[in-house]
């Protein structure tokens, strides 16, 4: 196998990495808001359940969560899973894990907003929903960007965990190639490392631009 074949193969698998990455963010970023809202709910059982969920997501390995989501329905519940369950399960596991982390980040962001903002909005007559979406949320987004960037970068690297349930993303492919006969061997891992690094560099650059774009106010 030539280096070129190896690279082509890695790039193909990188598509799966991107798939996991984008769908996780698409699901987890908004779901985190909902989780945070449930955690703050005045309905105590909902708040408790949400706290337990966050605690489990943060307290157990993502690798294990991937296995539970993928194997759980058939092994534990006896449900016949659809044929494309593998890619659904991987995104589902990542989304529910990352939503818990994002919820905690959002919580910190919302709690750091001065009470005066709520009071000013209330006196002006804004409803609770208007206050949340027009006054609190935009300011929260700015405050949480740095910690969210950290999580997003971690996510890029975490996608490699999908290999535990046999999803052929870039890292899985790299392992397959490296052990194949007549392959470029360890160079494959170096190539994979460079892919991850460059991708993360782009992510960090993009997030930095976003932070700068919100720098127009303090």
């Amino acid at each position: 196998m030539t280096v070129q074949t190896m690279l082509t193969s890695l790039i193909q698998a990188f598509g799966t990495t991107l798939f996991i990455f984008f769908f996780t963010l698409l699901g987890a970023l908004p779901l985190g808001l909902l989780v945070n809202a449930c955690r703050k709910s005045r309905f105590a059982p909902l708040s408790w359940l949400t706290k337990i969920y966050i605690s489990i997501m943060r307290g157990t390995p993502l690798m294990l969560q991937l296995m539970v989501v993928y194997f759980g329905p058939s092994l534990l519940l006896g449900i016949t899973v659809p044929g494309n369950w593998r890619s659904t399960a991987v995104v589902l596991a990542f989304v529910i894990n990352y939503a818990a982390y994002f919820a905690e980040i959002y919580r910190g962001g919302i709690e750091s907003i001065p009470i005066g903002q709520y009071e000013a909005a209330q006196v002006l007559g804004y409803s609770r929903l208007q206050t949340y979406f027009k006054i609190i949320l935009p300011q929260m987004v700015k405050r949480v960007l740095p910690p969210v960037t950290n999580e997003v970068i971690t996510l890029v690297k975490d996608t490699s965990l999908a290999s535990v349930i046999g999803v052929v993303e870039m890292f899985t492919r790299a392992k397959q190639i490296a052990v194949a006969p007549h392959s470029p061997g360890m160079i494959t891992f170096l190539a994979a490392a460079i892919f991850y690094y460059v991708f993360n560099y782009a992510v960090a650059f993009g997030m930095e631009r976003l932070e700068k774009a919100l720098d127009y106010y303090e």
Binding site: G116, Q117, E119, A120, A121, V123, L124, G125, K142, Y217
Partner: peptide, 19 residues
Amino acid sequence: KKIRGYFGLVFQNFHLFPH
């Protein structure tokens, strides 16, 4: 809600919307 329309309040620390 209607009654809130009758009054305004100026705070010690302004509490303008920074964004």
